[in-house]
Nucleic acid binder design. Structure first.
Lengths: 155, 155
DNA sequence: ATAATTAAAGTCAGTATTAGTCAAATTAAA
DNA sequence: TTTAATTTGACTAATACTGACTTTAATTAT
C-alpha cells in the first residue's frame, strides 16, 4: 500500500470510527495527540477529505467543551446537476443570470416558489448593492454556490 | 457525546423545566448551587442562550425575594419582538446572532426547516467572508432584512 | 421615618479552553 | 524540474468560566 502519509491515515481512522453511524464528534486535540501531529493537521484532513463533494458536512464549536462534528450526508439524485451549475457560476454572476438559474431549479421542482423568492430576495441587486459592481457579482456567486451546495443533500 | 460544558447543561435544564409553560421563575443562587457553579454563570447562560433573538425575554429583580423570570415569547403575535429583531440586525449582524434569529423563525413555523437551511447557507461566515469583517456583517444584515420583508409580504 | 443590615441579582474584566487560519517549509508526484 | 500535496507552528478567534465589585430591594434596628 502506497502513500501512507498521516493525512491518509487520519482520514481512514475517522472513517472507521464513523462506521455505520451517521456522525461523529471529536476533539481536535485528542485526535492530534493520538496521531502525534499538530492540531491544525486535523483541519487539513477535514478540509481536503471531508468536503460536501465527498458527502460530508462538518460543524464545530470552539471554547470549553468544543468539538468537531463530522456528519455523513447522503447526496441527492440531482446532486450532480447542481454541481454542474456551481461550476457555471464560477466566481462571479450577475443578477439576471442568477435569476435564470433559480427559475430553472424551480421548474425542475428542486425549489418551491417560496424558496425561490427567498433566494431571490437575498441575491437581489438592492440587497447586494456595493460601490463596486464586480464585488456585487462575486458575493452573489458565493451566496448562490453556498445555497446550491446545500441543496445537494437533505438534513 | 456532545455538549459537555456546564452552560449547555444548564440551558437544557432550564428549557426542560420551562417545558410547555410560557415562563419560569428561578432563583439564581439556587440554580448555581444545583450545578455547583458561581452565580454569574447563570447570567452567562441567560445572556448567551435566552436572548430575544432566541425567542426569550428575561426579567429579574434584585434584593430580598429576588428572582429571574424567563419568558418564552411568540414572534407571531408580538409585534414588538419583530421590531426588536430588526433593531438587533441593524446595519450589521454577526453569524451567530443571525443563526439564533433563523432558528427562532423556524421554531415559530415562519420558516420550514429547508428554508432555514438555505438561508443559513447564504449568510454563513464562509460565504460572506471578506477582507473587511465589517462588510460581512453589513451584507448579512441586508440579506436578513430583505428576507424578513419577504416573509411579511407572504402573509 | 430613617438608617443600617441583609439578601438578592448584575457587571465586567481577566483567565482558561477550545478550534481556525495562513503561510512557510518540506515532501511527493508529474 | 516544476507543481501539487502535506506538514508545521505561530498567531487569531470564539466560547466558557470565575470572582471581585456594584447595584437594587427588602428587612430590621434605631
Amino acid at each position: 500500500m502506497q502513500s501512507q502519509n498521516i493525512s491518509d491515515i487520519i482520514e481512514k481512522y475517522l472513517k472507521s470510527i464513523l462506521g455505520d453511524s451517521q456522525q461523529i464528534e471529536i476533539k481536535r486535540s485528542e485526535i492530534a495527540e493520538l496521531f502525534n501531529c499538530v492540531p491544525s493537521q486535523i483541519n487539513y484532513v477535514i478540509n481536503t477529505r471531508f468536503t460536501i463533494q465527498n458527502g460530508y458536512v462538518v460543524k464545530s464549536k470552539r471554547g470549553g467543551g468544543g468539538y468537531i462534528r463530522i456528519v455523513k450526508v447522503n447526496l441527492l439524485d440531482d446532486s450532480d446537476v447542481i454541481k454542474d451549475l456551481v461550476n457555471i457560476i464560477g466566481d462571479g454572476i450577475d443578477f439576471n443570470k442568477s435569476l435564470q438559474i433559480i427559475q430553472s431549479l424551480f421548474q425542475e421542482d428542486l425549489l418551491t416558489r417560496r424558496e425561490s423568492n427567498l433566494i431571490i430576495a437575498s441575491i437581489d441587486k438592492r440587497t447586494l448593492a456595493f460601490e463596486d459592481r464586480q464585488i456585487e457579482n462575486i458575493v452573489r456567486a458565493r451566496i448562490l454556490i453556498s445555497i446550491l451546495n446545500r441543496l445537494r443533500y437533505d438534513d
